[in-house]
Design a protein around this nucleic acid. Structure first.
Lengths: 193, 193
DNA sequence: CGTGAGCCATACGCGACAGTATGGAACTCG
DNA sequence: CGAGTTCCATACTGTCGCGTATGGCTCACG
């Protein structure tokens, strides 16, 4: 069954429905499949509906990106920042990322579309914020400015690289046990005492 | 000057010319710009020329990928494998990658196009080979199977993640000095004594 | 009940790109 | 020198996706 036609028999649609459908399709198939007619099929309507809610495809992408960026910011970041001990905060960051992959799937899909003019600034902001959070934690853990920047960069590179390898390339086929062991290895390697 | 029209006034073209132009465009602008007419403009000819050398666009991409994969394999890998000491071999691998970015630019561009059916198997092979080289080196350095696999995965994730951050996102703007310091940090962190 | 606003279907135009058909220029070699 | 091979230009078709135009359905509300 190739047809992923999720004909949601809802009555009328709102702008938010289109944005959510865009994010779902983005996570499943990438930005290239986020087309007007593809989303219309998914929602069980035609283009006529779309162009009532949005003036253009770019407007939908822009709105969907803003929605994701907002959700990402206070779902992931805000919940970890209040942790006082910087090492515990770093560890919690790593553990959080290793679970609830849902938000990271979209992150990885967007990293695949950095050539798109609307995507790049968003990912630059998001990545810079996350790098800042990491750098601050390392600084509070006692590292000087230079060392903290290096460790933060290495940790974040490992994050985005791992997503690319496992989600897009599907390289390792880690089962749950192996994955947990790997995460623990990464934590002990990147958060030294 | 937006026009990157490199009108090479060469006489006739060969299949290899088209493959090289495809790799160049791939490195500069991504696979999406590797179109028949775009390459034709770059080479100063028209589509009529292309379809004499290749039956289809996919055939060109396939040939260009094989060319790159072959070149990559014996340029990067074969020159490092003969190093006897595994730690020195790892260090040399990291240092090599940090220079001559030319081949890695194409690697990064291809990682952005993993959704393409011709690209994914190539990148899977290449990545698996590199992972194997890393794993073997770590094993020879004294780590058990599990630890070596973890370290290799972390190192390779850091590699592909760093490429994505610096080349596609253009995040840090590291000058030469900072970059060397970062590479040294990565080496000491990922190749423990 | 009917009227206007909100939501959607249908049909069309347009540009980008893949691929085809065909003729022509240039080079080679007997 | 002439005939065949090689390489390329021109002109065409077909498809896909964006965007527009226009009309119809449905529900709220006076």
């Amino acid at each position: 069954m190739v047809s992923v036609t999720k004909l949601e028999p809802k009555g009328r649609l709102s702008s938010a429905d289109w944005e959510q459908a865009a994010l779902d399709t983005l996570a499943e198939s990438g930005l290239g499949v986020v087309t007007v007619e593809s989303l219309a099929r998914r929602l069980g309507v035609t283009k006529g509906s779309f162009y009532w809610h949005f003036p253009t495809r770019e407007a939908l992408i822009k709105a969907a990106l803003e929605r994701w960026e907002r959700r990402d910011e206070d779902e992931i970041m805000a919940q970890v920042e209040p942790i006082a001990d910087p090492r515990a905060r770093l560890r919690e960051l790593f553990l959080r990322v290793s679970r609830e992959m849902q938000s990271h799937v979209i992150y990885a899909a967007l990293m695949q579309s950095l050539d798109h003019p609307l995507v790049k600034p968003v990912m630059t902001r998001v990545s810079q914020r996350r790098l800042d959070v990491l750098t601050l934690a390392y600084r509070q853990a006692g590292f000087d400015r230079r060392a903290a920047a290096h460790r933060a960069r290495l940790a974040y590179s490992a994050y985005t690289g791992f997503l690319q390898l496992s989600l897009q390339l599907g390289l390792p086929r880690l089962n749950h046990e192996e994955f947990e062991a790997y995460v623990e290895h990464v934590i002990t390697t990147l958060i030294p005492t």
